[in-house]
Structures are given as C-alpha cells and as structure tokens.
C-alpha cells in the first residue's frame, strides 16, 4: 500500500469515526461513554438505538448490513463500527 493510499484510508476512517460518533451522541447522556467497548453489551446504547444505527450506517455510507454481518463484535465499539464500515466499503 502506498503512502497516499494509507493517508486516504486514515482520512476516510477519521470521517467515518466523526460521523458515527455524532450520530451516537444523540443516544447517550455522556459522550465519553462512546469511547469504551460494550456499546451494546454494556448497555451504553439501548436496543432501539442499535436498530437506528444499522439503518444510519446504510444510508450514510451506502453499505448494506447483511444478516451475516449482524454480529455483536461488529458494533460493540466505535472502533469496531469504523472497521466494519471500511470492510464493507472496500468489498
């Protein structure tokens, strides 16, 4: 991978991270909670927010969340969500 590709990937990841964090901030009283793991398993996000997150990722980033993607590890932290979007966008 060239340094240009690496820089582009880093920029894209930062954009996705900012967008995901902005979206999830509506559902938490304390945005520092979004930096931790366990967004779903730890109860930071309620289940209705989780449903809306899936729809938002599809709308915002033009990806499709398939049934086989519905694994908790893909959505339990902002890091995991950013990585998931990058994988789906590259596929």
């Amino acid at each position: 991978m060239s340094s240009n590709q690496t820089a582009a990937g880093t920029t894209q990841a930062a954009t996705v991270r900012a967008a995901v964090t902005r979206f999830l901030a509506r559902y938490v009283d304390d945005t520092t909670l979004l930096q931790q793991h366990g967004l779903l398993t730890g109860g930071v996000l309620d289940s209705l927010a989780a449903v809306e997150l899936l729809a938002h990722l599809e709308r915002q980033f033009g990806i499709t969340v398939d049934n086989e993607d519905l694994e908790i590890d893909n959505f339990d932290s902002v890091d995991a969500i950013v990585a998931f979007v990058a994988r789906k966008a590259a596929a």
């Binding site: 289940s47 989780a50 449903v51 899936l54 969340v65 049934n67 519905l70």
Partner: peptide, 11 residues
C-alpha cells in the same frame, strides 16, 4: 423486519 435485525444482532 427491523426488530428481526435487532434480535439477530443481540442474540
């Protein structure tokens, strides 16, 4: 359909 996705996600 949305509830089905949630149920699958959360087990």
């Amino acid at each position: 359909a949305a509830a089905g996705r949630l149920a699958r996600l959360t087990g």
